[in-house]
């Protein structure tokens, strides 16, 4: 077992990036797990509510700024930009999301 190496710090995603669920992956709501799950070949990630809220908005159309605004509106919160950008950067690095072109 030797695929995992040292992981560089992913940083923050740009506010104008348009992330989409990566090709070959699928995000869906699983009632049995009461969570969004990300499905990929021979594996899955069960997302916590925050990650699920972000990932479910990554449709390749909306920018990160749009996603931040939408989540802040939906949950009546503010100041989430840094958290969302950090998560999107991490998800891009892990290959869960990709940049729409």
């Amino acid at each position: 077992m030797s695929a995992a190496g040292a992981v560089p710090e992913p940083g923050l995603a740009g506010l104008d990036a348009r992330p989409a669920i990566a090709a070959g992956m699928r995000l869906q709501w699983e009632a049995a797990q009461d969570a969004h799950v990300l499905l990929y070949p021979e594996g899955m990630v069960k997302l916590n509510p925050s990650a699920g809220a972000i990932m479910s908005r990554c449709d390749g159309q909306r920018t990160v700024a749009d996603i931040v605004a939408d989540i802040e509106r939906t949950y009546d919160l503010s100041g989430l930009a840094t958290d969302v950008r950090a998560f999107v950067a991490l998800a891009l690095q892990r290959g869960w999301l990709e940049q729409a072109t």
Partner: peptide, 18 residues
Amino acid sequence: MTAPSPASSVATGPPPQG
């Protein structure tokens, strides 16, 4: 809403060779 962490848990399906 707390700072998002990537996932609450990861379940890797056991493919034949893991």
